[in-house]
Amino acid sequence: MPEPAVLAEALSKQFGDVVAVDAIDLNIPAASVMALLGPNGAGKTTIVRMLATLCEPTSGTASVCGFDIVREADAVRNAISLTGQFAALEANLTAQENLILMARLRGYRRRAAAQVAEHLIDQLDIAEFKDKLVKSISGGQRRRVDLAASLVVKPKLLVLDEPTTGLDPRSRQAVWSAIRELVTEGVTVLLTTQYLEEADELADQVVVMDHGRAVASGTPPELRAQIGDHRVDVVVADPADVDRVVEALGSRFLLTLDRARRTVSVPAPNEAVELALVAQELKQAVIPVDEISLRRPTLDDAFLALTGEPSTTVVEARDDFAGVPS
């Protein structure tokens, strides 16, 4: 069996009294995609930082391509490329200058570095804004440059921390197709995300995290089986009508209520079938409705299904820097 790209055992990290990562096990086979899925503060970024040798675990071990992340940090850095959550580019250099600098730092000579930059500018559609200062390009463009900066050499493991957070759908698709392409070229990808859909689209394996723990893991189909599929949301105009909707639908479906949003949610494994049934029932009961919609399950639904309680969103401190709190 080939060596896994990442192997972690009981990996833990504590900041003072806060357990940011609590005994996480990971096994990422080479040339596959692993997604860490969870809300802010779940510990995803801390795992990424430990694997990228930016901070050391409090306990437990991990190796990247067979190299220990603490004892053989240099070898690990050789094997990985990190694209952090906050675009780590020099804002006062152009996109092209940033790429050339990264290629030079990776050891290319001047000419080769320019060619590498040129190639990536071409492949990731950067040409249009390659001569603009990074501080003056859009978030989506910056992500592309950031990704390109991680690809000046072929990494064995590409680590992407929330690669599409805050991107418009088109930019998101572009990042997704780049990731798929990289996997076919033999790169292993570890990505973190808050979007169930993203994990579902890209990952071979998903670890769902909350409060530093893995609350579930498996392939997307396995998780989907646990989470359930699509849902139909019914939003009523009058809060009092929520109970009437429950009365009309309660005998046929397992409902979830959100009274604050005047919403009743119905599982819809057969998508349009349930949508039609719900609409019919509401019509018969003559309940005025603001909105009926069919949607994919969200991270919140997943947490509800997997843990029986909603995800707790903690505000994660910007942990790209550094100082120890006094």
Partner: peptide
Amino acid sequence: MSTVSIGLLPTGIGEPVQATVGRTARYLRE
């Protein structure tokens, strides 16, 4: 010289020199 890579990753554009130089030379270069 034209690049020969076809994929997303730049390949065939010469090798990084890093491995071939000593630690001090690398430090100064970086």
